[in-house]
Design a protein around this nucleic acid. Sequence first.
DNA 1: TCTATCTATCGAAATTTTCGATAGTGGTCA
DNA 2: TGACCACTATCGAAAATTTCGATAGATAGA
Lengths: 284, 284
Amino acid sequence: MDINLARTFLMVAETGSFIDAAHRLNITQSTVSARIKGLEDLLGRPVFERSKSGADLTAAGEQFHKHALALVRVWQRAQLEVSLSDQHRDHIAVGAPATLWHGALLKTISKLRTDTPDIAISATAAVQDVLTQRLIEGTLDLAMMYRPIQPPGHTVEHLFDEEFVLVTSARTAPKKGSSDYVFINWGSDFQRDHAAAYPELIKPGLSLDLGSMPLEYVLANELSAYFPMRVVKPYLSRGRLKQPKRARRFVYPVYLVYPEARDEDAYDPILDMLRRECGRYATD
Amino acid sequence: MDINLARTFLMVAETGSFIDAAHRLNITQSTVSARIKGLEDLLGRPVFERSKSGADLTAAGEQFHKHALALVRVWQRAQLEVSLSDQHRDHIAVGAPATLWHGALLKTISKLRTDTPDIAISATAAVQDVLTQRLIEGTLDLAMMYRPIQPPGHTVEHLFDEEFVLVTSARTAPKKGSSDYVFINWGSDFQRDHAAAYPELIKPGLSLDLGSMPLEYVLANELSAYFPMRVVKPYLSRGRLKQPKRARRFVYPVYLVYPEARDEDAYDPILDMLRRECGRYATD
DNA sequence: TCTATCTATCGAAATTTTCGATAGTGGTCA
DNA sequence: TGACCACTATCGAAAATTTCGATAGATAGA
């Protein structure tokens, strides 16, 4: 797959014509035709509907359009960034799902600021797949996450187990499948197990991927949703939230993920702080 | 640029050797050598340091590594999704930076659930670049964001102007440059203007990209940071936060971004709700 | 100094891409 | 209905690129 196939595709999509695309790209119409045919062979589907009036995108073509843009963009970005690759990175980037930022991780960040004021820190809340991706590509130095797919070249270290419980702010007991249930995206493991436990809720009416926002939303709207026990415990104690009887619980181990090849002087103080802070969450 | 150059690069990076990569890829060592040389010609820099013991990534090579992964992944994803392009999408994905989820947008989501219970909604809080990217690749249907780079094929519609103000929870007035200041990532425009206004704070000790978490963090830790006035107004009224004298304010227009080619029956009710809800934020 | 092991280069062969010419298709108009 | 027009598809040839096998070059270790 050559990027030029994507560029040719995009030009035909833009002009609506093989001939016009050929003019813009300084190649012949038969070259455009051959390239689009080659692309269609690779994808296994036609991307244009040809006619006397030119070429229109098929459904597959419309689907491919964004990928073609992405391919061109990734390659352009690669060329740019490689040319700037001598720049030095002097900060540490830490990431975790929004849930895990409650408590220990944020406290550790605070302590790090105090103890090592010359190291800049950037903190990111994102979903697990994004975190894994950024670890792989090197834009994240350390992550805390639920059971990760082990990124190549990284150590995965168990910290504690996180329990997800169903809670509701409604005054009457909610029924599963009713519109007061909100699915919150706690990661792919949760999504899978949740789908297995509640097959009828595979497609809830509302799903949220909003960091810490969901708790406020659930509290304000008499909804029910799954949350980590660690987070909702104070609200349960105060009666703001209730646990419905006989709801499934999900338990997921939480891990630290960091590079095998690392500057131990920089990493070890952080890792040690996190191990200590998370000690309190150890169960049984 | 052929994806096979990226694949070859990744295999050499993984094995540390042209010969081993050749074996794994079922090509000859000279083909590997030629491909890597071709890649280096395109990038304008060497990506491997060759030696008798094999090949190690250069700084440019390390930089290129994530792009190579991205290229391979985008192409794989393209092939998969094109093959599923007949599937019907029956939900709407909405995205905004965490800040903008406060208020109107979340209320609109609630109303939508009530008015159109058969349409599934997924809501995502993410930074602007991610939102733009997802609009382009079609995994987001509608976004609310500060001044976006106009994604191709999308309409950008102005809603209201958002004012960012510096607030502090500290009892004594904070000094810029001191360790009680936290930089919160409100997007690239804010980053740029903030850097221009406070050049000495280009690299703050702590920067957060944590959705709505930062307000709680600032309140709990006697820190200062920029927030939208809309969000902090209640805290200012209650005295929980103060506005330091003579701090810069930043004002950014907020826009809706949605596809030009769209099912208006599906979109227009949502757009109208949002226009009404945001009417209250109109300034002057 | 010799050997081993790796990458780089060479020339030839194989494969792919591009071109110009022309076939094929289908819509429009008299 | 036939001619004309405008577009894409295909063909065969030429050009360009890629791959291979052989071997040169570089370097570390014994």
